[in-house]
Amino acid sequence: MTLTKADLVEAVYKEHSTMTKKAAVDAVETFLRLSKGALIDGSDLLLSGFGKFNVKDKKERKGRNPQTGDSLMLEKRRVITFKPSGILRDKINAS
């Protein structure tokens, strides 16, 4: 099963009885916008009890086309890694 943005909105809406559906949508959208903005700017995103998203720079490197075997240079790029918190890891492994 995959948790979607719509599922998150529904969960926030159900958790907070005084919140409207539109307010729940706005809350989830704002959180995601702020999170994406931080990662795009190159900042790490730490969510206590959940984990840490890190932005890492990959250098240009030699690669190979697996279909043809031709060598090529892969461009430098940025990637996002995720490391779960110890709390989350323990809960996942307890299941």
Rank of each mutant, 00 (worst) to 15 (best):
F50N: 08
S48D: 13
I87K: 14
K52H: 02
E75D: 15
D70K: 15
E29D: 15
D57G: 05
L88R: 03
N93Y: 02
N93D: 13
E10Y: 00
D41T: 03
K36W: 02
K21H: 10
Y13W: 14
L32I: 15
K21Y: 06
M1E: 10
N54P: 00
S85W: 05
S71A: 13
L8F: 11
F50D: 09
V79S: 12
F82V: 04
K91D: 11
S43E: 15
S85L: 02
E15R: 14
L72T: 05
L34P: 00
K52C: 11
P84C: 08
E10W: 00
E29I: 00
P84V: 01
P66V: 06
K14V: 03
E15I: 00
V79Q: 04
F31V: 12
S48P: 03
D90K: 15
S48Q: 11
K14S: 12
L74Q: 08
L47E: 03
V12Y: 04
S48N: 13
A27Y: 01
K91S: 13
M19N: 00
D44Y: 01
D44F: 02
L46A: 13
L8Y: 01
G86M: 02
R61S: 12
D41F: 00
M73F: 07
L32H: 08
L45Q: 04
K22Q: 12
D7K: 06
D70H: 08
E15T: 13
K21T: 05
M1D: 12
G42F: 06
F82K: 07
E29K: 08
K52M: 10
F53H: 03
G49A: 07
A38T: 02
A24R: 05
E60G: 08
T18D: 11
L47S: 08
V12P: 03
A27C: 12
F53M: 09
I40W: 01
N93K: 15
L46G: 01
R89E: 14
A27F: 04
G37L: 04
G63W: 04
N93P: 09
